[in-house]
Amino acid sequence: MIDPVLQSPELRLAADSNQVLNYHRDPHNYITQVFGAQLPAIRTGFFNVHLTKGIIVQPHWHTNVNEMVYVISGEVITSVFNPFTQRLMTYYLRPGQLSLFPKGWFHWIIAESNHAHLLTIFDQPTPDIVYGSDFLRSVPKEVMQRAYCVNEEDYARAVAPIRESVILGPPVGCGRDS
């Protein structure tokens, strides 16, 4: 069966990955994208990620996609938590190298050099993303106390600075070089 998108008289087979800004932390740390909305014929999708040293793509997971990280320039560390072995798997990547984050596995990326440029490529045209910052600020302090014996006030104080989704961190003004 031929895909109806490919039969369309308005078929486009090219897109500009710089046109759609997904997230902007500052002029050197930002994410652009190409997904099905920008290129209907695409069966995958990707984020075009630009980072400077010390910036982190915050811990998160995807409910519906596998993610491959491909380094174009610079150096990054990728880390993923293996839920089967209960171990953290960490990789130091340079240009031309890649790592994989399986669907549902908690992961993050840290830039180890200035001007790191990478693609995060997904096996579906639109990823669902659960950000660690959203999870942390949404779990009631009473639940953390009951589940983990964490002092309620300590937890509330620890997550108080997280007021919104943090995609590229640390948040500007958190006391580190930003």
Rank of each mutant, 00 (worst) to 15 (best):
M1V: 09
M1G: 14
I2L: 11
S8V: 02
E10H: 10
R12N: 08
A14N: 08
N18S: 15
V20L: 08
L21Y: 04
L21K: 14
Y23A: 06
Y23V: 06
R25A: 10
R25F: 06
D26K: 03
P27Q: 10
P27D: 11
H28P: 00
H28F: 11
Y30R: 13
Y30E: 02
I31H: 01
I31F: 03
A37R: 14
A37N: 14
A37T: 12
Q38S: 09
Q38R: 05
Q38Y: 01
L39K: 09
P40L: 06
P40H: 07
A41W: 02
I42N: 05
G45A: 14
F47L: 12
N48P: 03
V49W: 01
H50E: 02
T52Y: 07
K53D: 08
V57H: 10
Q58S: 15
H62S: 12
M68K: 08
M68Y: 09
V69H: 01
V69I: 13
I72R: 07
S73V: 02
S79R: 11
V80M: 09
F81A: 12
P83V: 04
P83W: 04
T85V: 08
T85C: 07
Q86G: 00
L88A: 08
Y92C: 06
Y92F: 08
G96D: 06
Q97V: 00
F101G: 00
P102I: 04
P102E: 07
K103P: 00
W105R: 11
W105F: 14
F106I: 13
W108L: 12
E112V: 09
S113W: 00
S113L: 03
H115A: 10
H115N: 15
A116Y: 00
A116P: 09
A116Q: 00
L118A: 08
L119D: 02
P127E: 04
V130W: 00
V130Y: 01
V130Q: 06
V130I: 14
G132Q: 08
D134V: 01
F135T: 15
L136H: 02
L136A: 13
S138G: 15
V139M: 12
V143T: 15
V143W: 02
M144C: 10
R146L: 13
A147H: 06
A147C: 13
V150T: 13
E153F: 05
D154Q: 12
Y155V: 11
A156S: 14
R157V: 07
A158Q: 03
A158K: 08
V159H: 04
R163E: 12
E164C: 03
S165D: 05
S165E: 13
V166D: 05
I167S: 09
L168Q: 07
G169L: 05
P171R: 05
P171C: 00
V172I: 15
G175V: 05
D177L: 07
